[in-house]
Protein backbone atom coordinates (compact mmCIF):
# COMPACT_ATOMS: atom_id res chain seq x y z
CA UNK A 1 0.00 0.00 0.00
CA UNK A 2 1.29 3.46 -0.85
CA UNK A 3 1.65 6.11 1.85
CA UNK A 4 0.23 8.94 -0.22
CA UNK A 5 -1.35 8.82 -3.63
CA UNK A 6 -2.39 11.79 -5.77
CA UNK A 7 -4.71 11.06 -8.67
CA UNK A 8 -5.18 13.98 -11.08
CA UNK A 9 -5.12 16.48 -8.24
CA UNK A 10 -5.58 20.15 -9.04
CA UNK A 11 -5.82 23.18 -6.76
CA UNK A 12 -6.96 26.38 -8.40
CA UNK A 13 -7.30 29.83 -6.88
CA UNK A 14 -9.53 31.58 -9.35
CA UNK A 15 -7.55 31.53 -12.59
CA UNK A 16 -4.27 30.59 -10.89
CA UNK A 17 -3.45 26.90 -11.08
CA UNK A 18 -1.27 26.37 -8.00
CA UNK A 19 -1.36 22.62 -8.55
CA UNK A 20 -2.34 21.39 -11.98
CA UNK A 21 -3.30 17.76 -12.60
CA UNK A 22 -0.68 16.12 -10.41
CA UNK A 23 -0.52 12.34 -10.02
CA UNK A 24 2.12 10.79 -7.79
CA UNK A 25 2.49 7.74 -5.62
CA UNK A 26 4.72 7.95 -2.57
CA UNK A 27 5.74 4.61 -1.13
CA UNK A 28 5.65 3.79 2.56
CA UNK A 29 8.95 4.37 4.36
CA UNK A 30 10.26 6.52 1.55
CA UNK A 31 12.21 9.77 1.93
CA UNK A 32 10.44 11.73 -0.76
CA UNK A 33 11.31 15.30 -1.70
CA UNK A 34 9.27 17.86 -3.56
CA UNK A 35 11.69 20.21 -5.27
CA UNK A 36 10.97 23.37 -7.22
CA UNK A 37 11.25 27.14 -7.27
CA UNK A 38 8.88 29.20 -5.13
CA UNK A 39 5.37 29.24 -6.51
CA UNK A 40 5.85 25.94 -8.30
CA UNK A 41 3.14 24.16 -6.30
CA UNK A 42 5.28 22.00 -4.02
CA UNK A 43 4.13 23.63 -0.77
CA UNK A 44 0.51 23.54 -1.90
CA UNK A 45 0.87 19.80 -2.48
CA UNK A 46 2.19 19.40 1.06
CA UNK A 47 -0.70 21.45 2.43
CA UNK A 48 -3.12 19.29 0.47
CA UNK A 49 -1.71 16.21 2.18
CA UNK A 50 -1.86 17.88 5.61
CA UNK A 51 -5.44 18.97 4.99
CA UNK A 52 -4.92 22.74 5.22
CA UNK A 53 -6.15 22.96 1.66
CA UNK A 54 -8.65 20.88 -0.23
CA UNK A 55 -8.16 19.91 -3.88
CA UNK A 56 -10.33 21.62 -6.49
CA UNK A 57 -10.49 18.28 -8.28
CA UNK A 58 -8.90 14.85 -8.11
CA UNK A 59 -8.41 12.55 -5.18
CA UNK A 60 -5.83 12.16 -2.43
CA UNK A 61 -5.49 8.86 -0.64
CA UNK A 62 -3.44 8.45 2.52
CA UNK A 63 -2.59 4.83 3.33
CA UNK A 64 -5.25 3.66 1.00
CA UNK A 65 -8.19 5.59 2.40
CA UNK A 66 -9.69 8.65 0.78
CA UNK A 67 -8.54 11.83 2.54
CA UNK A 68 -10.24 14.44 0.40
CA UNK A 69 -12.54 16.53 2.63
CA UNK A 70 -11.02 15.40 5.91
CA UNK A 71 -9.89 18.21 8.24
CA UNK A 72 -6.22 18.15 9.35
CA UNK A 73 -7.05 16.74 12.79
CA UNK A 74 -8.50 13.60 11.27
CA UNK A 75 -5.40 12.73 9.26
CA UNK A 76 -2.61 10.51 10.42
CA UNK A 77 0.08 12.90 9.21
CA UNK A 78 2.02 15.59 11.05
CA UNK A 79 3.82 18.66 9.81
CA UNK A 80 7.06 20.46 10.62
CA UNK A 81 6.37 24.06 9.64
CA UNK A 82 8.71 26.39 7.85
CA UNK A 83 8.46 28.96 10.68
CA UNK A 84 8.24 26.07 13.20
CA UNK A 85 4.89 27.43 14.51
CA UNK A 86 5.80 26.69 18.13
CA UNK A 87 3.11 27.88 20.52
CA UNK A 88 4.74 30.92 22.15
CA UNK A 89 2.68 30.77 25.34
CA UNK A 90 3.59 27.16 26.17
CA UNK A 91 6.76 25.63 27.55
CA UNK A 92 8.69 23.38 25.23
CA UNK A 93 7.40 20.28 27.01
CA UNK A 94 3.78 21.41 26.66
CA UNK A 95 4.38 22.18 23.03
CA UNK A 96 5.60 18.65 22.43
CA UNK A 97 2.82 17.09 24.52
CA UNK A 98 0.09 19.14 22.82
CA UNK A 99 -0.86 16.59 20.19
CA UNK A 100 -1.24 13.89 22.87
CA UNK A 101 -3.22 16.22 25.12
CA UNK A 102 -5.86 17.03 22.52
CA UNK A 103 -6.18 13.34 21.75
CA UNK A 104 -6.97 12.68 25.39
CA UNK A 105 -3.76 10.93 26.46
CA UNK A 106 -3.32 11.05 30.25
CA UNK A 107 -0.98 13.51 31.88
CA UNK A 108 1.70 11.08 33.07
CA UNK A 109 1.92 9.24 29.79
CA UNK A 110 1.96 12.30 27.60
CA UNK A 111 4.73 14.02 29.54
CA UNK A 112 6.75 10.83 29.55
CA UNK A 113 6.38 10.45 25.81
CA UNK A 114 7.15 14.15 25.29
CA UNK A 115 10.37 13.76 27.31
CA UNK A 116 11.29 10.78 25.16
CA UNK A 117 10.65 12.74 21.99
CA UNK A 118 12.82 15.60 23.26
CA UNK A 119 15.57 13.10 24.05
CA UNK A 120 15.31 11.76 20.53
CA UNK A 121 16.19 15.21 19.12
CA UNK A 122 18.90 15.69 21.78
CA UNK A 123 17.00 18.35 23.71
CA UNK A 124 16.55 16.57 27.05
CA UNK A 125 16.40 19.11 29.85
CA UNK A 126 14.99 21.90 27.67
CA UNK A 127 11.36 21.08 28.50
CA UNK A 128 10.81 23.93 30.95
CA UNK A 129 11.92 26.69 28.57
CA UNK A 130 9.74 28.89 26.45
CA UNK A 131 10.26 28.74 22.67
CA UNK A 132 11.54 32.33 22.69
CA UNK A 133 14.49 31.20 24.83
CA UNK A 134 15.74 28.74 22.22
CA UNK A 135 18.04 29.19 19.25
CA UNK A 136 16.79 28.64 15.70
CA UNK A 137 18.27 25.16 15.51
CA UNK A 138 16.75 24.18 18.86
CA UNK A 139 13.31 25.44 17.82
CA UNK A 140 13.63 23.37 14.70
CA UNK A 141 14.26 20.26 16.83
CA UNK A 142 11.31 21.04 19.08
CA UNK A 143 9.09 21.31 16.02
CA UNK A 144 10.37 17.94 14.92
CA UNK A 145 9.79 16.34 18.32
CA UNK A 146 6.31 17.85 18.53
CA UNK A 147 5.36 16.22 15.24
CA UNK A 148 7.05 12.87 15.89
CA UNK A 149 5.63 12.35 19.37
CA UNK A 150 2.28 11.57 17.72
CA UNK A 151 3.91 8.68 15.86
CA UNK A 152 2.50 9.70 12.49
CA UNK A 153 2.97 7.31 9.61
CA UNK A 154 3.78 10.25 7.34
CA UNK A 155 5.83 13.28 8.38
CA UNK A 156 5.55 16.41 6.26
CA UNK A 157 8.45 18.86 6.33
CA UNK A 158 7.93 22.30 4.78
CA UNK A 159 11.37 23.75 4.06
CA UNK A 160 12.31 23.06 7.67
CA UNK A 161 15.99 23.93 7.26
CA UNK A 162 15.51 27.14 5.30
CA UNK A 163 16.08 29.46 8.27
CA UNK A 164 19.27 27.76 9.49
CA UNK A 165 22.80 28.75 8.52
CA UNK A 166 24.81 26.51 6.23
CA UNK A 167 26.77 24.46 8.81
CA UNK A 168 23.72 23.77 10.96
CA UNK A 169 21.69 22.93 7.88
CA UNK A 170 24.17 20.28 6.75
CA UNK A 171 24.22 18.76 10.22
CA UNK A 172 20.41 18.67 10.38
CA UNK A 173 20.25 17.10 6.93
CA UNK A 174 22.20 14.06 8.04
CA UNK A 175 20.32 13.88 11.35
CA UNK A 176 16.97 13.98 9.59
CA UNK A 177 18.06 11.24 7.21
CA UNK A 178 19.26 9.11 10.13
CA UNK A 179 16.03 9.68 12.03
CA UNK A 180 13.96 8.67 9.03
CA UNK A 181 15.85 5.40 8.62
CA UNK A 182 15.61 4.65 12.30
CA UNK A 183 11.85 5.34 12.55
CA UNK A 184 11.01 3.82 9.19
CA UNK A 185 8.19 6.30 8.54
CA UNK A 186 7.51 8.19 5.33
CA UNK A 187 9.10 11.65 5.11
CA UNK A 188 7.78 14.11 2.57
CA UNK A 189 10.23 16.96 2.35
CA UNK A 190 9.60 20.24 0.54
CA UNK A 191 12.61 22.30 -0.51
CA UNK A 192 13.80 24.71 -3.16
CA UNK A 193 17.42 23.69 -2.58
CA UNK A 194 18.36 21.08 -5.18
CA UNK A 195 21.53 19.92 -3.41
CA UNK A 196 19.50 19.32 -0.22
CA UNK A 197 16.96 17.28 -2.14
CA UNK A 198 19.64 15.26 -3.94
CA UNK A 199 21.63 14.42 -0.82
CA UNK A 200 18.72 13.32 1.39
CA UNK A 201 16.04 11.74 -0.73
CA UNK A 202 15.17 8.31 -2.02
CA UNK A 203 13.16 9.96 -4.76
CA UNK A 204 12.57 13.56 -5.82
CA UNK A 205 9.64 15.14 -7.64
CA UNK A 206 10.60 18.28 -9.56
CA UNK A 207 7.80 20.84 -9.69
CA UNK A 208 7.41 23.64 -12.19
CA UNK A 209 4.34 25.88 -12.61
CA UNK A 210 2.03 23.60 -10.70
CA UNK A 211 3.07 20.48 -12.54
CA UNK A 212 5.52 17.67 -11.94
CA UNK A 213 8.23 17.55 -14.58
CA UNK A 214 9.98 14.41 -13.37
CA UNK A 215 9.93 11.97 -10.46
CA UNK A 216 13.08 9.95 -10.05
CA UNK A 217 16.02 8.98 -7.87
CA UNK A 218 18.59 11.75 -7.31
CA UNK A 219 21.12 10.01 -9.53
CA UNK A 220 18.71 9.62 -12.41
CA UNK A 221 17.48 13.19 -12.06
CA UNK A 222 21.00 14.42 -12.47
CA UNK A 223 22.21 11.99 -15.07
CA UNK A 224 18.99 11.62 -17.07
CA UNK A 225 16.96 14.83 -16.77
CA UNK A 226 13.75 14.52 -18.71
CA UNK A 227 13.06 18.14 -19.54
CA UNK A 228 15.06 21.33 -20.07
CA UNK A 229 13.66 22.69 -16.77
CA UNK A 230 14.89 19.71 -14.77
CA UNK A 231 18.27 19.78 -16.50
CA UNK A 232 18.76 23.43 -15.57
CA UNK A 233 17.17 23.41 -12.11
CA UNK A 234 18.94 20.31 -10.82
CA UNK A 235 22.61 21.21 -10.99
CA UNK A 236 23.89 23.37 -13.82
CA UNK A 237 23.44 22.38 -17.40
CA UNK A 238 23.82 23.57 -20.96
CA UNK A 239 20.65 23.01 -22.93
CA UNK A 240 21.25 23.29 -26.66
CA UNK A 241 18.43 23.40 -29.19
CA UNK A 242 17.57 23.82 -32.84
CA UNK A 243 20.29 23.75 -35.51
CA UNK A 244 22.97 23.07 -32.96
CA UNK A 245 21.09 20.07 -31.56
CA UNK A 246 20.43 18.75 -35.04
CA UNK A 247 24.08 19.09 -36.03
CA UNK A 248 25.40 17.37 -32.93
CA UNK A 249 22.82 14.64 -32.30
CA UNK A 250 21.05 14.28 -35.60
CA UNK A 251 17.73 15.01 -33.81
CA UNK A 252 15.51 18.08 -33.56
CA UNK A 253 15.01 17.56 -29.81
CA UNK A 254 17.02 19.71 -27.39
CA UNK A 255 19.75 18.03 -25.40
CA UNK A 256 21.60 18.70 -22.18
CA UNK A 257 25.31 18.56 -21.51
CA UNK A 258 26.75 19.11 -18.01
CA UNK A 259 29.58 21.71 -17.73
CA UNK A 260 31.88 19.21 -16.05
CA UNK A 261 31.53 16.79 -18.96
CA UNK A 262 32.97 19.30 -21.38
CA UNK A 263 36.66 19.93 -21.83
CA UNK A 264 38.42 22.79 -23.54
CA UNK A 265 40.77 21.63 -26.25
CA UNK A 266 43.71 22.84 -28.30
CA UNK A 267 43.35 23.11 -32.06
CA UNK A 268 46.19 20.65 -32.67
CA UNK A 269 44.82 17.60 -30.87
CA UNK A 270 42.72 15.31 -33.06
CA UNK A 271 39.07 14.66 -32.17
CA UNK A 272 38.42 11.27 -30.51
CA UNK A 273 36.08 8.89 -32.28
CA UNK A 274 33.05 9.27 -29.98
CA UNK A 275 33.50 13.01 -29.43
CA UNK A 276 31.83 16.09 -30.81
CA UNK A 277 33.19 19.62 -30.74
CA UNK A 278 31.94 23.20 -31.05
CA UNK A 279 33.82 26.43 -31.63
CA UNK A 280 33.48 29.48 -29.41
CA UNK A 281 35.08 32.57 -27.94
CA UNK A 282 35.89 32.76 -24.23
CA UNK A 283 33.83 35.47 -22.50
CA UNK A 284 34.54 35.10 -18.81
CA UNK A 285 36.57 33.01 -16.36
CA UNK A 286 35.35 32.47 -12.79
CA UNK A 287 37.57 30.91 -10.19
CA UNK A 288 35.41 28.82 -7.82
CA UNK A 289 37.90 27.02 -5.62
CA UNK A 290 37.45 23.36 -6.50
CA UNK A 291 36.79 24.18 -10.13
CA UNK A 292 37.11 26.97 -12.65
CA UNK A 293 34.17 27.96 -14.77
CA UNK A 294 34.50 29.21 -18.33
CA UNK A 295 31.76 31.02 -20.23
CA UNK A 296 31.96 30.61 -24.00
CA UNK A 297 30.00 32.29 -26.73
CA UNK A 298 29.44 29.85 -29.56
CA UNK A 299 29.49 30.84 -33.22
CA UNK A 300 25.68 30.72 -33.42
CA UNK A 301 25.35 33.07 -30.44
CA UNK A 302 24.47 30.45 -27.78
CA UNK A 303 26.49 30.47 -24.60
CA UNK A 304 28.13 27.40 -23.14
CA UNK A 305 29.36 26.86 -19.58
CA UNK A 306 32.37 24.65 -19.05
CA UNK A 307 33.64 23.57 -15.65
CA UNK A 308 37.15 22.20 -15.11
CA UNK A 309 38.40 20.72 -11.85
CA UNK A 310 41.38 22.69 -10.60
CA UNK A 311 44.64 20.79 -10.53
CA UNK A 312 47.93 21.95 -9.03
CA UNK A 313 49.09 25.51 -9.25
CA UNK A 314 51.60 24.86 -12.03
CA UNK A 315 48.85 24.39 -14.60
CA UNK A 316 47.05 27.58 -13.64
CA UNK A 317 49.63 29.74 -15.40
CA UNK A 318 48.41 28.72 -18.82
CA UNK A 319 44.75 29.75 -18.23
CA UNK A 320 43.10 30.97 -21.42
CA UNK A 321 42.20 34.66 -21.47
CA UNK A 322 38.80 36.20 -22.39
CA UNK A 323 38.58 36.95 -26.08
CA UNK A 324 40.55 33.85 -27.02
CA UNK A 325 38.88 31.44 -29.50
CA UNK A 326 38.54 27.92 -28.11
CA UNK A 327 37.22 24.48 -28.92
CA UNK A 328 34.87 22.67 -26.54
CA UNK A 329 34.65 18.91 -26.79
CA UNK A 330 32.57 16.23 -25.13
CA UNK A 331 31.65 12.60 -25.46
CA UNK A 332 28.48 11.63 -27.32
CA UNK A 333 27.34 9.54 -24.34
CA UNK A 334 27.33 12.63 -22.14
CA UNK A 335 24.52 14.23 -24.12
CA UNK A 336 21.01 13.63 -22.75
CA UNK A 337 18.12 14.05 -25.10
CA UNK A 338 15.27 16.12 -23.59
CA UNK A 339 11.62 16.63 -24.39
CA UNK A 340 9.59 19.77 -23.77
CA UNK A 341 6.73 19.11 -21.31
CA UNK A 342 3.21 19.28 -22.68
CA UNK A 343 1.86 22.77 -22.34
CA UNK A 344 -0.54 23.12 -19.40
Amino acid sequence: MSAVQFTHVSRHYGAVKAVDDVSITIAEGEFFSMLGPSGSGKTTCLRLIAGFEQPSSGSIRIHGSEATGLPPYQRDVNTVFQDYALFPHMQVLDNVAYGLKVKGVGKTERYQRAEEALAMVALDGFGQRKPAQLSGGQRQRVALARALVNRPRVLLLDEPLGALDLKLREQMQSELKKLQRQLGITFIFVTHDQSEALSMSDRVAVFNRGRIEQVDTPRNLYMQPATPFVAEFVGTSNVLRGEMALALTGQQRPFSIRPEHIRLADQQLPLAADEVQVRGVLQDVQYQGAATRFELRLDNGDSLTVSCANAFAAEQDSLPQPGQPLLARWSRQAMVSLHEPLAG
Partner: peptide, 20 residues
Protein backbone atom coordinates in the same frame (compact mmCIF):
# COMPACT_ATOMS: atom_id res chain seq x y z
CA UNK B 1 -2.74 6.24 16.13
CA UNK B 2 -6.08 5.22 14.75
CA UNK B 3 -8.82 7.82 14.53
CA UNK B 4 -11.09 7.93 17.60
CA UNK B 5 -14.08 5.63 17.35
CA UNK B 6 -17.09 7.95 17.40
CA UNK B 7 -16.70 11.71 16.99
CA UNK B 8 -18.49 13.74 19.63
CA UNK B 9 -21.26 16.11 18.49
CA UNK B 10 -18.98 19.07 19.19
CA UNK B 11 -16.30 17.61 16.96
CA UNK B 12 -18.85 16.97 14.27
CA UNK B 13 -19.86 20.63 14.38
CA UNK B 14 -16.20 21.64 14.29
CA UNK B 15 -15.62 19.51 11.20
CA UNK B 16 -18.75 20.83 9.55
CA UNK B 17 -17.58 24.43 10.12
CA UNK B 18 -14.11 23.58 8.90
CA UNK B 19 -15.46 22.27 5.65
CA UNK B 20 -17.63 25.33 5.09
Amino acid sequence: MTPPSAPTPMRRIASMLYRR
